[in-house]
């Protein structure tokens, strides 16, 4: 399988990358780890005419403590997230979820920015980031802007990024301690989740998100409201499929996914010690 021909441009900085994208328009794509883009290019589902390689924008692979939040460069790999002592201490759910993406070879190349910008509702990291809240920094031709995570995922493989913007930084609240859990249900190891559930307490509030229960990763708003109203984990988990629009595919029907969402939400809440 060989991708269609494209022109290759290497960017040395995020400013240069944004300028190149602006120059070549909406037929151009950013290339980071390439582990979502290359399979799509091989199947000719994606046929960009220009690739702007941002893999060498070395100043975007940091994971920094910024006192009230953690700032992650968009090019930090899944592997660097899962092994980051800072994340393991201050935001353990994110380190753990990164360790559940694909297999080691994927995690050595895949980046958090790439995963979020790709906005696959079946991916692990978008749902983890959505459960945590926080914000994302996007750089465009007119400078940087901040997008709330809750506004970022706008549709099936669609995000709030415009064609000429590049995701540069992920700002996550600190969520230390043991009150978190991630449930990923799949039939083959290393596969995408048929359904996944992330549950985490952020500053005393329980936040729950769902993988592969709609066209975007979703917050389980009904579960969160039930918990806030004093419901038990078992009672709240019964609401997990409320407001979702689960897809149908070879693995599962929408009804089966709704069942999985309820069961996995209960397991996640109980394992996180939220009852």
């Amino acid at each position: 399988m060989i991708p269609a021909a494209f022109d290759y441009k290497r960017a040395g900085s995020s400013e240069e990358a944004v300028a190149l994208i602006a120059e070549y328009g909406d037929e151009a794509k950013f290339l980071a780890g390439g582990h979502s883009l290359l399979p799509m290019m091989k199947l000719r589902l994606a046929v960009p005419t220009v690739l702007v390689d941002i893999g060498r924008v070395g100043d975007l692979s940091y994971i920094d403590d910024r006192d009230d939040h953690i700032a992650i460069g968009a090019l930090a790999t899944h592997r660097s997230l899962e092994t980051s002592e800072l994340l393991i201490t201050e935001c353990p759910i994110l380190a753990h979820v990164a360790s559940k993406v694909g297999d080691p070879q994927v995690r050595h190349r895949g980046t958090i920015g790439g995963s979020l910008a790709h906005s696959d509702p079946a991916s692990d990291l978008p749902a983890a980031v959505l459960a945590l809240g926080g914000s994302l920094m996007a750089q465009g031709p007119n400078g940087e802007r901040e997008v709330q995570v809750s506004d970022f995922f706008t549709g099936y493989f669609e995000s709030a990024l415009s064609d000429d913007e590049m995701l540069t930084e992920i700002r996550m609240p600190k969520a230390p301690g043991d009150s978190w859990n991630y449930q990923k249900f799949n039939r083959r190891a290393q596969d995408w989740a048929i359904v996944g559930v992330a549950a985490v307490q952020v500053q005393g509030t329980t936040q729950v998100s769902l993988v592969n229960m709609g066209s975007t990763p979703l917050r389980a708003a009904a579960v969160e409201a039930a918990l806030a109203g004093g419901a038990s984990a078992v009672e709240a988990a019964e609401q997990a499929a409320e407001g979702t629009d689960a897809p149908t595919d070879l693995n599962a029907s929408p009804e089966y996914r709704a069942h999985l969402a309820r069961v996995l939400t209960r397991r996640a809440l109980e394992a996180a010690g939220i009852s």
């Binding site: 290759y8 390439g34 091989k42 199947l43 592997r79 070879q105 050595h108 190349r109």
Partner: peptide, 27 residues
Amino acid sequence: CEHGVCGCCTVLIDNQPVRSCLTFAIA
């Protein structure tokens, strides 16, 4: 498999195992 599943094409890049079928040579 040529699409990042089987691992046959694994090589080390800067000492880390990666899939050479999902990496452009130029990169």
